[in-house]
Amino acid sequence: MKPSDKRQVRFERLVKTWTKDVFRYAFWLCGDQHIAEELVQETFTRVWKYLDQLSDDNAAKSWLFTIVKRENARRYERYCPEIETLDHDQIAANGDYDTSTEAFVLRQALAKLPDEYREPLILQVIAGYSIKEIALQMDLSTGAVMTRVHRARQKLRDTLQGTENK
């Protein structure tokens, strides 16, 4: 196999393995399906360009998430939209979507969480990162991550319980 073919195969494998997680991470970072798609496209364009710098495919997840985060930050440099409510019609257009009231309330509450609480929680739930890994990814101490994740979860639970009590 030619080196260019090997590169192509490697790229395709990365795209097929990680697109779903990368998209979800991007979606919960920006709160909009179309912007998330653009972020994912930009991320993989960069991956294709700098693929040779990734020496170990096991490190791909962390690399991809870092690129998504940077791309999202670059977007914020240009324009900073405030996420207030999610467009449920937009995300419900796709098949496997939980339509329960709890899920609806949680999505809205997630969108309203401050970025510093939402991001570590997304990394924990979507990427399956441990507290230590989140700390590394976000360049924070493990203590700070624990506090943020704890508060994020607490806020979501409070919102959910508040709805149930009404």
Binding site: T19, K20, F23, R24, F27, W28, Q33, E37, I91, N94, G95, D96, Y97, D98, S100, E102, A103, L106, R107, L110, I122, V125, I126, L156, L160
Partner: peptide
């Protein structure tokens, strides 16, 4: 519930 709520399907 949280995991399910975060499951957003990727666009076709």
């Amino acid at each position: 519930t949280l995991v399910e709520a975060m499951k957003i399907e990727i666009p076709a």
